[in-house]
Design a protein around this nucleic acid. Structure first.
Lengths: 202, 202, 202, 202
DNA sequence: ACGCCCGGGACGCCCCGTTGGT
DNA sequence: ACCAACGGGGCGTCCCGGGCGT
């Protein structure tokens, strides 16, 4: 394996380790040393790849979170004929492992902790949020064309709400310390989703 | 004014100052000195009233947040004949000032930041959450008795979802830095609430 | 001894310890820990009294160096009938102990190390320099009135040169690591001083 | 251009860049990265040519400073029939550009900052100092032979003083941030130099 | 030989929540 | 109710080696 490749991998390794711990404990509660501990690397490596701890998180938002949104939440819905039903399925069978459910939505966590403190964070997180809810909006619009989604609703607002409510539900489950809480919450979200379906007949 | 009274007042003064700053910046980003700055008091006073910074927040959750939940969110709904409509009104006309809307829901903020780090926090916040969603559940149950709320829904789960979605919406608006985002979100929450009404009849 | 008094003493203790080490090794080569080591105090105490390491040195310049200039260099000359001779005596019999001679002139050291890097330093050091050379100028002017100093020389420039040359001599002795170098240097400075005397007669 | 030649050039490039920054900011305030920045080279190159940052400065003292002393300060005086007058001219018309005057004498800077901290530095700087003041002494001795310099003065001590006072003057001007201060200082040094001339007549 | 990239750690300054003595 | 002192980290920087490529 070439040197360049291991280098990229080292960088990723740091980002992955950081993501996990920050997801769990939050940004400020996570020390750089703590991040490094698991990797066997040292400060030298860290500050070789990232200008600062903040910079690391910026990279995580841009490179990891966006990716996760695509893979976990947008991907499974793409091309769905009936997005509403697919939404409900996805939320019911999300692949997120039981443990990490309890750490809340990573994006939501960052927004809540950092938005008022660091403008740069806020901007990046905002971009990710818009990517996410914008993705949902597009999917809903496709449904509208196919007749599986009501046409008298604002797809953008619906997409935004789904994301927001989803974040709220995960936050709630996080504090409850109970994954079931999340699924109970989702069942209510299902009710909301139902309202997006076209009127049954008539 | 007796000495005892000023004492109680000093304690409250600290809690109020802390609440404001912590609501804005979060727990870890708020220093004890920062809290004290505005009050003219010193560390000595602080540690006279509170064992630790954590202890202060515990008190804030127990004494201030619970109170706010009662005053702002449960009170306006008590005795409502048609809770659903009242919910929608409350969310539309919330008295929270525009600025503090952007700091997010204080309870949600604490949950997200502290739940995984400090078990004692989590427990207190959980109690507050249950007080809140439990209050909503009671109100919904009363509606069920009066026929203004469907009887085939689980009032507890509905109450919990309303609280969770509300927190999610505020978090979203917080990161957007735009109060309008909150109101857009609420309009979607209205749709959910509609699903709790009894079927029109037929 | 009252609390206030010990407090002032603690502060002074830190400053004294810092002065010694910084005089010897320079500002940047001196760590805060190193300063504290000798005192038995800890970081907490340090940052209670000084906002930063820079702030400490600022205080040292303002409070210790100015004092030393008065005591060691201006005081012995005050009221001298024949300043030139007194200058020569003072430089010959300076009370500075042999060891600290080799660390150079503290003011000169700071000027050389910090002037280009920290403007605030420069300003404070400049004030001290002017206090010093200004003091010499005053003394020379008194001599001019009494007829023991030529009247056709600029007292300010002469004062400034004495200070500058003195600093240069100490710097030179410092690098030589030999106190004798300083005294050899002073003997040449004596020649300069002689030129400030009124022309013998005629 | 042969490979060997570019190699030597690269080495020089590093030394030149380092000299400029170190002259300005001092040794400890100058980082290796900072030195390299302007050159387009990287650490690898640096440590290929120099064992350490200290080693680099050693080389600078030996190769650059000695050269500068010869070119700027000894050369213009060599073979002078009347060294005293020549001295005065040289100090009045020094070629050092106005900006770098304000950084002080490079040799003096190093002496003041590093002498007590690094013995190896001290030794090298000492050698340079002796080269310089020794050169002056030789020139004065030649004057003595020619009758343009008093014979009852110690040429070594006089040479040393000139160098020391010169350093002191530059240091003073450096902290004043004013080149004029240097020239005012030089005018006083002129007075000293006059005392080295043979008694006028008799 | 020359030069670069990656990585290593030690240490720097500073800040923080906290405890005693008064 | 306060001021003084504590000491443990926090992040970031710095100087420096080794392995790879040219």
């Amino acid at each position: 394996m070439t040197k360049r490749e291991t280098s990229i991998q080292t960088r990723m390794q740091i980002m992955a380790a950081a993501f996990t711990i920050v997801h769990k404990n939050g940004f400020r509660a996570t020390g750089v040393n703590e991040i490094l501990e698991g990797t066997g690397l040292t400060k030298g490596a860290f500050y070789h790849y990232f200008k600062s701890k903040n910079d690391l998180i910026h990279a995580i938002v841009d490179e990891i979170l966006i990716q996760m949104i695509d893979d976990l939440w947008l991907g499974p819905l793409s091309g769905a004929d009936d997005p509403i039903t697919r939404f409900q399925e996805v939320f019911r069978t999300t692949k997120v492992d039981r443990e990490s459910v309890l750490y809340g939505c990573p994006l939501n966590n960052l927004a809540v902790e950092m938005a008022p403190v660091d403008e740069e964070f806020r901007r990046r997180v905002e971009k990710a949020y818009q990517h996410w809810s914008g993705g949902y909006a597009d999917i809903l619009r496709q449904g509208q064309k196919r007749g599986t989604v009501r046409t008298d609703i604002d797809a953008d607002q619906a997409g935004a709400f789904i994301v927001a409510a989803f974040g709220g539900c995960r936050a709630r489950a996080k504090n409850a310390g109970d994954p079931e809480e999340l699924f109970r919450c989702h069942r209510q979200l299902d009710r909301y989703l139902e309202t997006l379906r076209p009127a049954p007949d008539r």
